[in-house]
């Protein structure tokens, strides 16, 4: 038992080590935004996709670029525009000339077929093009015509969107939002961070990000994360939290009943568990605790709650509702 424990402990230590190495590489370029970087890395190691929301100029795209450099994975960036078609991102059949002078139709793969996808300003694409991502994100495959292409693991879509410039945008459908593990809010940097940003971006010194992990490393780290134990109390707590997001449910607080149109799907629990496992490993534990679940609850559930008009009129956000849920749903075996 001791050997088994020490092996698991070394795996957990390796996990933590790689995590912090990648973070350190990304931090060479990025100043601040530690929560966002941790979130992106957590999602990558948990096997989920990330939606980054923030106003322009906060480094959303930069984070993903740096991450792709640090993990040495195939990277492609798609700048979504309203006239983009599914074939533009998935790929299409192209007539090519053969060596013998003949012609044949070949599949020219789109930028979606890679490891790390940066879907920049995803809400600028039409729903038709946005939906082209659904299959890739959930089933990790792309179907064009009669051809289905299995995507290489690790596969991670990191999308960005601007919450302010809403004109000429197409809000992401619920089905697509649900497929993102995290929705991270990128905020403005702190005052003391501005100086570093200026130095790093306007100085003559070029920042070089070294790859510290490969795709295989990421896959092995994912395996470690999935092995983390989950006590039944923590599981039931996560389930209660997700049920509490559904209006008129058993655990829903009054505010959820009043302001929510749609609650989280079971994907929410999956997200809470996967991200909770990564959190447990980062905190030197081998089992997920309720505190881990609480910590990532906002990031996991934020985009899964669809608010009604009354909430929008009252300036109620999903974060306030999640706060309500966290205070309403009792942790297991609480005595007060």
């Amino acid at each position: 038992m001791a050997e088994q424990s020490s092996a698991v402990a070394s795996q957990a230590a390796h996990f933590k080590e790689v995590f912090y190495k990648i973070r350190a590489e990304v931090n060479k370029m990025m100043v601040g935004q530690s929560d966002v970087i941790d979130g992106v890395l957590t999602a990558l190691l948990a096997g989920g996709h990330v939606l980054l929301e923030g106003v322009p100029g906060l480094g959303k795209t930069m984070i993903v670029r740096c991450l792709s450099d640090a993990v040495h994975l195939g990277f492609s960036r798609i700048q979504f525009t309203p006239d983009m078609m599914p074939a533009d991102i998935q790929g299409t059949m192209v007539l090519t000339e053969t060596e013998g002078g003949g012609h044949e139709l070949n599949f020219q793969q789109g930028p979606l077929i890679s490891n790390l996808i940066l879907a920049d300003e995803i809400n600028r694409a039409t729903p038709k093009t946005q939906s082209a991502l659904l299959e890739a994100m959930q089933e990790k495959q792309v179907t064009v015509g009669s051809r289905t292409i299995r995507l290489d693991e690790p596969y991670c879509v990191m999308a960005t969107q601007n919450p302010v410039e809403q004109e000429g945008t197409y809000p992401l459908p619920e089905a697509q939002l649900d497929r993102f593990l995290f929705k991270l809010i990128v905020g403005y940097p702190e005052e003391h961070e501005y100086g570093d940003i200026v130095d790093r971006t306007t100085g003559s010194e070029e920042v070089v990000i070294d790859p510290v992990a490969t795709g295989a490393d990421i896959l092995s780290l994912r395996e470690i994360a999935r092995s983390v134990a989950v006590p039944s109390d923590t599981k039931s707590y996560a389930i209660k939290l997700v049920i509490a997001t559904q209006p008129q449910s058993k655990y829903a607080p009054e505010s959820v009943n009043k302001y929510t149109l749609l609650g989280s799907s079971p994907r929410g629990v999956q997200g809470l568990m996967l991200a909770g496992k990564v959190q447990a490993l980062l905190n030197d534990r081998f089992a997920v605790s309720t505190d881990d679940v609480k910590k990532i609850a906002h990031d996991v559930l934020r985009h899964r709650l669809i608010l009604n008009f009354q909430a929008q009129a009252s300036n109620v956000t999903t974060d306030t509702l999640i706060d309500d849920i966290l205070s309403h749903v009792k942790t297991p075996h609480a005595v007060n």
Binding site: M1, S5, V8, D291
Partner: peptide, 22 residues
């Protein structure tokens, strides 16, 4: 962080995973 509760639950199991043992 629920370490004692988790251990108490896992210790009662007949078969434990490596992480539960840890």
């Amino acid at each position: 962080k629920d370490r004692l509760q988790a251990a108490d639950e896992f210790i009662r199991k007949d078969q434990t995973t490596p992480f539960e043992t840890a």
